[in-house]
Design a protein around this nucleic acid. Sequence first.
DNA 1: CATGAATGAGTGTTCATTCAT
DNA 2: CATGAATGAACACTCATTCAT
Lengths: 225, 225, 225, 225
Amino acid sequence: MPKTPAPPLGDAAATPPARQRRKAERPQELLDAALAQFVSKGLAATRMDDVARQAGVSKGTLYLYYPSKDELFKAVVRNSVVTVLTEGSDIVDRFEGPTSELLHTLMHTWWSRIGASKASGIFKLVVADVGNMPELAQFYLDEVIVPTHQLLGRAVERGVARGEFRAFDVTAVVQSLMASAQFLMLYPYCVGSLPDHPFPLDAETFMKTQMELLLHGLEVPRGHA
Amino acid sequence: MPKTPAPPLGDAAATPPARQRRKAERPQELLDAALAQFVSKGLAATRMDDVARQAGVSKGTLYLYYPSKDELFKAVVRNSVVTVLTEGSDIVDRFEGPTSELLHTLMHTWWSRIGASKASGIFKLVVADVGNMPELAQFYLDEVIVPTHQLLGRAVERGVARGEFRAFDVTAVVQSLMASAQFLMLYPYCVGSLPDHPFPLDAETFMKTQMELLLHGLEVPRGHA
Amino acid sequence: MPKTPAPPLGDAAATPPARQRRKAERPQELLDAALAQFVSKGLAATRMDDVARQAGVSKGTLYLYYPSKDELFKAVVRNSVVTVLTEGSDIVDRFEGPTSELLHTLMHTWWSRIGASKASGIFKLVVADVGNMPELAQFYLDEVIVPTHQLLGRAVERGVARGEFRAFDVTAVVQSLMASAQFLMLYPYCVGSLPDHPFPLDAETFMKTQMELLLHGLEVPRGHA
Amino acid sequence: MPKTPAPPLGDAAATPPARQRRKAERPQELLDAALAQFVSKGLAATRMDDVARQAGVSKGTLYLYYPSKDELFKAVVRNSVVTVLTEGSDIVDRFEGPTSELLHTLMHTWWSRIGASKASGIFKLVVADVGNMPELAQFYLDEVIVPTHQLLGRAVERGVARGEFRAFDVTAVVQSLMASAQFLMLYPYCVGSLPDHPFPLDAETFMKTQMELLLHGLEVPRGHA
DNA sequence: CATGAATGAGTGTTCATTCAT
DNA sequence: CATGAATGAACACTCATTCAT
């Protein structure tokens, strides 16, 4: 019976042997497991055992990749948020059309990539534990907050430059958008955690409404000259 | 009818023996200490010893008043937020003048009573730990979220009834306000925890701006007929 | 208005004022409460609070009468067992009639005074805790075991002296009787603690049977000369 | 058919690595240590630390094998008594010869396996703590008392069936035997705990005497027709 | 005398981290 | 590399004992 044929030369890197492929994927598998556990139980209440079991490895293996619980947590944060920001930046650069539409696009992209995924739980974790991990604060500021501000700031400035928006304190507008995003991210961990609660929140509707309010306050009054 | 003779001026009866006076004040002292510790270190990272020491009592005494860490935490939440809500309700009932001003008043009252105090840290704690304390979720919904919605909802409806605001989804407006409040409460535990950060947030300005944006989107266009 | 008349001389001790009577009865009330608690929960699992509450006094008062838990326990033991032994001794001295009947009488007196009362639980406690209280062992030996041996030994010797019993190792007979008594005292704390158990033990029947077996082995064979 | 080559003489596979061999032996080592500690100090007074130290492991390791103190205790009881009962049952099945001799054999087997070993202290523990552990009561009844009754009951019935014993209430005879056994088990924890006590108890003599009394009361009068 | 608030040493249990295999 | 047995520091909670009132 023919063995698995040797991969053609030059292609070896593309399909490594199963063991190596496994090894290459391990870090991501561990981070996924850790994210799920951290988000659902909180940092302190999650045991390294839980993470390892969910990832299907032993506790020792987990420590082979991440030297401590704190480092694992930081790696989870890093892994979950950074990649998305470059995507948003591209959108701002390339977008053509009204800025209000750009903002809608950014918001929806964020929602589909972060807000609606488990990654939204990271914000909860950062808020909860940043007080005991000073380096995490700096990291989160540098890697998340600042880029986000720049990203959104550029979008708003685009609107002003194009005469679509009133001249308005850009930081204030950005913070307004971030407040909305944070609200959406935390809602599931607040009232949303109860099976029946009186204020069901549809994210799409919420974003649309907030955006409408914001833009109405932002846009240059038109047509009643 | 012979009465107990009136105590001498200064009313000795009004100043019970030191031990009793202490016992009457203990619960609040313990709650204050617990709030400070919980907020600064998180629920899991705070030891009962820490709380007791900060309150100047032994650990045993702490357990004399609160039977467990969880109960202590719930008492802290109760103590810090519930009283303020009735105050806000009174303001809405008695307010005369434009609704925009009422909203400003409410926002500033909230800020001075909750937002600017350590009590703001409670929101962080609730978000962080509600996942492991299901009863807390219900409690927070019943005692904080629902009353807050009602309070703000009544204020917004007042504006609509008086013809000041457009007819608008009340819940959306309330959520917008709560998003701003949450943003302010969490800011110190996010980027704000760093000594020097590039987005210093002045709460007064932030509230003013958000309110301005919101009201601009809310108010009935006037005078350009 | 006439005060309570002074009690006539010589009678004061018989009817002391209520408060003093209360005080005089306190120790017994405390011992009763302690016995009940110790027996039902064991020494280690009984809190001084429990004893005090059952006795209707504060914990401080309990310590006013007994300086420690250990001392309280010893007092309970002393109080419950010692008095009965003198009664048994009297019976042996005065008894007239067959010795087999004397043994029956002693057994039933023991049962009604000790075996059937809560005092039987003391044996359980002594067995359980004597290992950690060396003085208790000596006390129990001196005050309970030795007198009991002497009491029963005299009864058996009477039977031998009167020609009713074979000459037999007295200690062995006494131990046989004590084994039966211990069995009865411990039964409730062993299988007897279960609501439905397959070996219901009627104490009267048990004692009668054991005595019958013992006497049958002890009595001088009669009448088949 | 190619087999795995036979291991060299001495069978290396039979001696697993030290770590695994240790793991296989750990439970028994822990149970031995726990038995010794429990018996000498009582359940409540024994700290898990003590057990661990005596077993030469850390406290954490102890919890690796037994999830709580209560479970450890139950495992000790199980381990110490259950195995012996099957041995006794075998003896009854196979015995040939007079039933009085069978009873002697059973008694001596019990003494060498249980009575004279530390396992006798388990009875003390059960008596002392069964009140606070309802499941233990049921377990002890099912696993110890009932089998013991059956075992001894069969032996007594054998004597009656073979015409050696009078027809007698079997339960009463069994209880008489158990009373003797309990007396022997508790003696060391009662007067026996003192270095010099006036009633030294030689177990062999005691058993012989009790058996003699019992059998004399039980056996069919012979030969003086 | 009586109270009960206060104490703090003590213990069961958990879990991040290590390391022999 | 991977494992999982072992560790031990840490912490919530209890309760016998004290003492100011």
